[in-house]
């Protein structure tokens, strides 16, 4: 009896954690037009930073704050060589950054345990039973989801958010109005990376174990799938996208027990995932829920 509920709660926690990632990518790509192909790097930075801070005995809230600060720093610094240029350079650079970061964390045992990773990361709330722990996680994660959602909605409607959209639509026009677009793009990446970093921190405390192999590039593209399926530029949409992705991923895992197919279910899931990405881009590139129009007076 307890199993399906625990499974559902687990799924919702994952939806929340990756929903935060999707929100951050939506700010970067959906609103500002910056294709960050290294989302997993900032997720990883957040997870490792917060894990190291909480393992050193400091409280969870300090861990998350640290994770956000370090991720924001890297988000702004790493992209600097590429944001003056066309968006494809940013994509290649951030993708490469993720790979190199994983290489470093794998090889340098003194930073965070190397290949073995970090174990026994303290949870945000100390609880007694398994079930109350799950509810605790759910509450913690969704406090962050709601906070970031409200923050990003506020940002979207502010003049600042309109400026970011102006950069997406026509950077030259924004520049000619006297806006330092490179500086604003770096800010958008810093904010986006900070949010992604906090999601990494939540992930680390939820799993209580992290290692380099948890942060493969496919996570980046799962987050991209959430944004594209849910609706580019719509914060509500990308949260729906995160839920759809979780249902798809878990559904295919459950399905394998009932289906007699000669294909390995893991391989099949990824093959369908690749096809789905192409089909959505081809037939509904704006996603399920379209971007809202800017309300003028």
């Amino acid at each position: 009896m307890a199993f399906p509920i625990a499974y559902l709660l687990d799924m919702l926690v994952f939806t929340g954690i990756f929903g935060i990632m999707a929100l951050s990518l939506n700010l970067e790509f959906g609103h500002t037009g910056l294709p960050n192909f290294g989302k997993v790097a900032f997720f990883m930075i957040g997870a490792y930073t917060s894990a190291l801070i909480t393992l050193a005995g400091y409280p969870f809230i300090l861990g998350i704050t640290g994770a956000m600060a370090v991720s924001a720093f890297f988000g702004a610094i790493v992209s600097l060589p590429a944001i003056r240029l066309r968006e494809d350079y940013l994509a290649i650079l951030t993708l490469a950054f993720g790979e190199i970061l994983r290489l470093i964390l794998k090889n340098e045992e003194w930073i965070a345990g190397g290949v073995l990773g970090l174990k026994g990361i303290p949870e945000a709330l100390t609880t007694t039973s398994f079930k109350s722990a799950l509810y605790g996680h759910l509450i913690v994660v969704y406090i962050f989801v709601v906070t970031f959602y409200i923050f990003l909605r506020f940002l979207e409607k502010s003049p600042y958010g309109r400026l970011l959209k102006a950069i997406r639509e026509d950077e030259l026009a924004a520049q000619s109005l006297g806006k330092n677009t490179v500086w604003y793009k770096a800010q958008a990446l810093a904010i986006g990376s900070a949010i992604a970093g906090s999601s990494g921190g939540l992930y680390a405390q939820y799993l209580s174990y992290i290692g380099p192999d948890l942060f493969m590039p496919v996570i980046t593209f799962a987050v991209w799938a959430m944004v594209i399926i849910g609706g580019v530029g719509n914060h509500k949409g990308v949260l729906v996208g995160a839920l759809i992705y979780q249902i798809f991923e878990r559904g295919s895992r459950i399905f394998k027990d009932y289906l007699q197919i000669p294909i390995d279910p893991n391989n099949m899931m990824f093959m369908i995932f690749g096809l789905l990405l192409i089909i959505v881009l081809m037939f509904r590139p704006e996603g399920l829920i379209k971007e809202e129009k800017i309300k003028l007076l």
């Binding site: 991209w224 690749g274 990405l277």
Partner: peptide
Amino acid sequence: VHLMISSIGVGIFLRY
């Protein structure tokens, strides 16, 4: 960006 993402989709499909 759509083309880049679709190439990732193609890549994931081919790899698996």
